[in-house]
Write a protein that binds this DNA or RNA. Structure first.
Lengths: 250, 250
DNA sequence: CGGCTATTTGACATAAGTCAAGGGAGGTGG
DNA sequence: CCACCTCCCTTGACTTATGTCAAATAGCCG
């Protein structure tokens, strides 16, 4: 943790906690289709153990692969990437984390990836040491993390299928459609996505060379699924891109 | 569920339940490096709600994508694949499930993939309806599923990196090394893996054409990492294949 | 032993990687 | 305010891994 570079506020208000999910089968955990509904009790339990962290710039490290894993993180605002860098020098971005996401996966007490900001970010740092105890006293809170983890698992499986079975233009279109879900970067009125992510990051996420990502943008534009206003501003033709982006099982 | 084709026994002994994991940070859930240590209480809670299912052949359906999801499954013995089939006719096998694994992921009350046996299999069917209640009464049981899900998430992330960043021979070598972990199909004395999986399934798992998988086998053999005794019997040269299979971060 | 299917090999097509070079947008300083 | 400069992004040319289609071989079961 680059705490020296991070501004520490003192505490996080209970009502600031949100956990983003799509679905839950646990009747104990209702949700509104987008966020889990946290009880006041759960919010206060989180508030007691959460340490607020502000990372005011992009590309700031949060933790590195193999660091001793002592905390998990709940993203309040901003954007974070988790990635693994290989001996070849190639980097795979495993996921982008948006507000309401949890990250900090570890194995044998060490983080399994790097985590860095992609934009200015505010985090709730949750020491596992205390989270452990909070789970014993607040089973509903543990259930919340179970549901969030199941969501992440489903999403990662979906990524696996997309990455394995789609060509690059299709993978890129999928990513653009995901951006639409995030009000931070999509203007519904103009149908314009404002990418907070540079081409190099996008390439490492899509498992492609930056040059290939450019060509994929060009191809989507030729097919009139998108229009490039600037490298960061992409206008989507939703009527064309949505049907293009179905894995269309069966 | 093809219950008509499945033999139903009456109940599962509490000591038959095992859950396979690599790691857990929850101090409430000790493990021995391979299996979670279940308390007698948890075992009995599972025993009360589990329905045993026997599927005595390969390629038997367990559930289909979009079926109403009412159960999750704990694999007692055998081998199961979960897969999605796309409009193109291509199929992506998301994971093979070995004894001690849990499967049955759903979204909006519907399964997100097909599940089928790869070999004769015994399952514990766990109705979510009851599991839900068991979690409220046995927080440790919920913690167990949380840890198992975190394990699966880590594994799926690792697959994502491997699939994205490795060529086919390397992905195949990774898979062969995974088989070594499963006593069901590895003879440590002779260093021979007995693949319970046909080339077509292997291809759909590795996201490649069956022909390419054959070529990948041929290439590994040329480099003397393996020796093909028969299409199913593969002798591994562990001294060569193990170092070949590191993603070697940094 | 024969037929059947799964696997392997061969020949060619194609998407994406690599190396190299040409634009463009935005920031800085004159 | 403008010009320059830098850093990204994009395009071009060529190479390579893997997909596709076709055919030969090898196991396996009756």
């Amino acid at each position: 943790m680059g705490e020296s570079q991070a501004t520490l506020a003192s505490t996080i208000r209970p009502d600031e906690f949100n956990v983003r999910v799509v679905d839950s089968w646990l009747s104990a955990l209702p949700h509104d289709g987008e966020k889990l509904l946290l009880s006041d009790d759960d919010r206060q339990a989180l508030s007691r153990i959460a340490v607020p962290v502000s990372l005011p710039a992009a590309d700031m490290p949060i933790y590195h692969e193999r660091d001793a894993a002592q905390d998990v993180f709940l993203l309040m605002s901003g954007l974070v990437r988790t990635a693994r860098t290989l001996a070849s020098g190639r980097r795979q971005i495993i996921a982008f984390h948006w507000p309401g996401d949890v990250f900090g996966l570890s194995e044998h007490g060490a983080y399994v990836s790097d985590a860095e900001t992609v934009a200015p970010t505010r985090l709730a740092r949750l020491p596992m040491r205390y989270l452990d105890g909070a789970f014993l006293q607040h089973p509903a809170l543990q259930g919340l993390f179970l549901v969030k983890t199941l969501n992440d698992l489903r999403e990662t499986q979906h990524e696996l299928v997309t990455k394995s079975q789609s060509d690059l233009p299709t993978r890129l279109a999928f990513f653009l459609l995901q951006c639409v879900e995030h009000p931070e970067c999509y203007d519904a009125a103009t149908q314009v996505v404002s990418l907070p992510i540079a081409r190099a990051d996008l390439a490492d996420y899509l498992a492609a060379a930056p040059e290939s990502v450019s060509r994929a943008f060009a191809q989507l534009e030729q097919r009139r699924l998108i229009r490039r206003i600037s490298p960061q501003k992409i206008a989507l033709d939703m009527t064309r891109i949505a049907p293009f982006c179905t894995l269309a099982d069966r």
